[in-house]
Computed example of a mutant assay.
Amino acid sequence: MASTVAGPEIERLIQLLARLPGLGPRSARRAALHLIRKRETLMQPLAEALRVADERIVACSTCGNIDTRDPCTVCADPGRDAATIVVVESVGDLWALERAGAIRARYHVLGGVLSPLDGVGPGDLAIQPLVDRVAAGGVSEVILAVNATVDGQTTAHYLTDCLADYAVKVTRLAHGVPVGGELDYLDDGTIAAAMRQRTAF
């Protein structure tokens, strides 16, 4: 059994850091040592930022984004196309689309995808709030920006069925060859999807 060289407080810091995505035990140890070495310039400001975030961050009651205000900055922006709702699986996906700057629309965060094997059903996701938003009127298009996984596509089909009774156009993101991609390096599924969704040149 490996002996511990640090006190319980430091070990707890390492264990907590190791829970973060992308950080294993070794990376967490390195991060903890770096924080300890930079206590005044990094650890203390980080601790304060975490405290403030814990106190002020809320989930937007309209779209599910996280922000320090409700409705969130995106929902409150009058310059956005309120008639278009982009449906995403997670807040991370929403942020990725915002970084790309590809569309100035409103969003709806599902909170995951349907996954019978993992016990995730329609009641576990924010599907009914989406239907309610469409039913309230003023929405002309719903863009399904879910991931191109089996569960993502199952969720997209389910949402399409849920919205079938409303006068709203349901579209999805195109899948295929990425910009700058080389065919030789792409998987078979991506190539097949690109071929099915080919467009005029």
Rank of each mutant, 00 (worst) to 15 (best):
M1S: 15
M1H: 15
A2L: 12
A2V: 15
S3G: 14
T4E: 15
V5N: 12
A6M: 06
A6I: 08
E9W: 07
E11F: 05
R12S: 15
L13E: 10
Q15M: 07
L20V: 13
G24P: 07
G24Y: 05
G24I: 07
R26G: 08
R26E: 06
S27H: 09
A28F: 04
R29C: 09
A31R: 02
A31Q: 04
A32L: 13
L35F: 03
K38G: 12
E40Y: 05
T41K: 07
L46Q: 09
L46P: 14
L46S: 15
A47D: 12
E48I: 04
V52N: 11
E55Y: 10
E55K: 12
E55H: 10
I57T: 12
I57C: 11
D67P: 11
T68L: 13
T68W: 05
R69E: 10
P71W: 06
C72M: 02
C75F: 01
P78E: 00
R80V: 07
D81W: 03
V88T: 08
V91E: 06
G92F: 10
A96S: 13
A102S: 14
R106Q: 07
Y107K: 08
H108G: 05
V113M: 09
V113P: 08
L114P: 12
L117R: 13
G119V: 02
V120R: 10
P122V: 01
L125V: 03
L125K: 08
R133L: 06
V134D: 03
A136G: 08
S140G: 01
E141N: 01
V142N: 02
V142A: 05
I143D: 11
A145Y: 03
A145Q: 13
N147D: 15
N147K: 01
T149I: 00
T149F: 05
Q153H: 06
T155G: 06
H157S: 12
Y158S: 00
T160S: 13
T160K: 03
L163D: 04
A164R: 11
A167F: 02
K169G: 02
V170P: 04
G176N: 13
G176W: 07
V177C: 09
P178R: 01
V179Q: 11
V179E: 09
E182P: 03
E182H: 07
L186P: 05
D187N: 06
A192D: 10
